[in-house]
């Protein structure tokens, strides 16, 4: 498999972890309760840890001159290949939980397949991450139920988030050219095959949470090709601030 193709394939997975980790870490200190704050930070730490494993692998593939930080901080917006879902802002706790749940359900299915990758490093990263992400999914689906079947106010708020974020779920199952190549070589996961199972899991949980599943014909996509929402620029200006302001320094 061509190196560049493999690298692009990895970005398609790793950038999701980076951007979602970044979003979650913005919350630290502002959660509804200390306990919840600590829990969300744990998920952020898991995701950023996974990001580092992927990026270190990419750095190794790219040759000596590139570091995990170059990859994390010094690409242009179009070069980040995360899905639109994970870059959506922390409007309120309902959004945070819904975004998390929509991603966790996909993430776990993805990792369960990725552990069978012919690429040993990817397989090893996936095996480790499965344990973390199983916990994330448990956490976020428990909370979806609490918010959905909690009070009238919480049901409205989380329903609002579900309605807004649903349109970003379909992109998860889109295959880029890089993905297709990786699948053919037994390195990558054919995410389109995960779709049915995903919607089954998501719908079951939403139903249990007494939430209404939106009926949508049009879904948003673009992130996987590097065409992001307006939120992404602001996120990156925070993320990249130091590396851009003080180039070529050690921290």
């Amino acid at each position: 498999m061509k190196k560049e193709n493999l690298i692009q394939y990895i970005y398609g997975i790793a950038d999701n972890a980076l951007i979602l980790g970044q979003r979650l870490s913005e919350l630290c200190g502002h959660g509804p309760n200390l306990e919840t704050d600590i829990a969300c930070t744990n998920m952020a730490l898991d995701l950023l840890g996974q990001t580092r494993s992927y990026y270190q692998y990419v750095a190794q593939l790219s040759g000596e001159k590139v570091s995990e930080d170059d990859i994390a901080f010094l690409r242009t917006e179009r070069q980040y290949k995360n899905v639109l879902l994970v870059e959506q802002p922390n409007n309120h706790f309902g959004y945070i939980i819904t975004r998390q749940f929509f991603y966790d359900a996909f993430h776990l299915l993805l990792l369960q397949e990725l552990q069978n990758s012919k690429d040993e490093t990817l397989s090893a990263i996936a095996k480790k991450a499965i344990k973390e992400v199983s916990y994330h999914q448990r956490f976020s689906s428990d909370w979806i139920k609490r918010l959905g079947d909690g009070t009238e106010v919480s049901r409205q708020k989380v329903q609002e988030a579900v309605n807004d974020l649903w349109k970003f779920t379909d992109e998860l199952f889109q295959l880029t050219e890089y993905d297709k190549n990786a699948v053919e070589l037994g390195v990558g996961v054919d995410v389109s095959l995960l779709k049915e199972k995903y919607y089954q899991i998501v719908k079951e949980t939403l139903e249990e949470a007494t939430l209404i599943i939106p009926e949508l014909k049009w879904f948003r996509k673009g992130g996987k090709e590097g065409v992001h929402s307006e939120h992404m620029g602001y996120l990156l200006s925070d993320l990249q601030y130091m590396q851009r302001t003080y180039p070529n320094m050690k921290w």
Binding site: N33, T36, R146, L147, G150, T151, V153, S154
Partner: peptide, 11 residues
């Protein structure tokens, strides 16, 4: 965070 805490309690 109040509505979140209340929701969890009600649930």
């Amino acid at each position: 965070g109040e509505w979140v805490r209340d929701a969890a309690m009600a649930y």
